[in-house]
Design a binder for these strands. Structure first.
Lengths: 156, 156
DNA sequence: TCCGATTAGATCGGATACGATTTATTTTCT
DNA sequence: AGAAAATAAATCGTATCCGATCTAATCGGA
């Protein structure tokens, strides 16, 4: 019954890569959210950005980027699109014209109140493990950023 | 000691979103791999594709796509790039000219043998949990695909 | 057999990620 | 005060993802 030691057992097949599990789970989340988000005309990333913005009004682009692990090169186009769609407003901070402050509009806030992802809690099939997995994966992320060059610019 | 019920406690702040944990962990993996992959001139997705190809020679694009949860619209450009770089070869199947067969070159196989991700096992900080998390996240992915519209076209 | 349906890849357009650079503003240092 | 350094956001080019469409090859039924 024990399998012989073929190439696949050397630890290099896909299922042995944690990075692939995370990569593909992320794709799966994107697809699971798609039908829900299509109804409100949002993409997955746009939705996540709105959730982060619901924390607090008048956040700057970099503060938001810190929560989302993204920078202005990625965020600026997304925020401009969300402004066009009417879910948020952007304006330069009069006290420091370099910064752009972002706030949800009532429409944006209303959208977040709907808790679109709730139905996916069941679809995850994790049951009581749900919060544990959440914390574990978050810890994994933080460890990776801390223990690799990925977080180096922060340390300087 | 108990916090009062503010907006953040209603379950909609970022840290309560499993999808965000997965999303950001995936970003973190991409950044952790980046310095390693830069040395061999590969991107994160290209590397994952090579790992999947190391399973077996002469895979078709759709067979590879099934492993990676991707389709030809995403894979074709990546595979063409990897062919240019010299890590794989593509050729039409003479028995069915619709299909393209893909195999690693010796250079591609040599690259995979190096086990580039090994050092990240420690950086993940998961210790003995590593294989458990791997399985749990894979299960999460499979459940999401099965329990949502995301996997619907497969059922028809 | 032959024509419509199916299948496998490829192509195209829109939306992220991200390194590198640019612009505008503010801070710092003398 | 004034020039250099630092900072915040935006811009640009490359590489994914993905829906929709296209093309070429194969299959299937009357």
């Amino acid at each position: 019954m024990a399998r012989s030691l073929k190439a696949a057992d050397k630890g290099r097949n896909l299922s042995n890569f944690l990075c692939f599990a995370v990569y593909s789970a992320n794709l799966a989340f994107g697809r699971a959210y798609k039908p829900l988000l299509d109804k409100v005309g949002l993409t997955y990333t746009q939705y996540i950005a709105l959730v982060a913005l619901s924390d607090e009004d008048e956040q700057t682009v970099s503060a938001l980027g810190e929560k989302l692990f993204l920078e202005s090169n990625t965020l600026t186009p997304i925020l401009k699109k969300l402004e066009q769609t009417g879910y948020l407003k952007r304006h330069r901070d009069p006290a420091d014209e370099r910064q752009v402050r972002i706030s949800l509009t009532p429409a944006g806030r209303k959208l977040i109140e709907q808790d679109l992802g709730e139905s996916l809690r069941e679809a995850s099939g994790l049951g009581d493990e749900f919060p544990v997995v959440q914390k574990t994966v978050s810890r994994l992320r933080d460890n990776l950023l801390r223990n690799t060059q990925a977080g180096d610019e922060k340390k300087r």
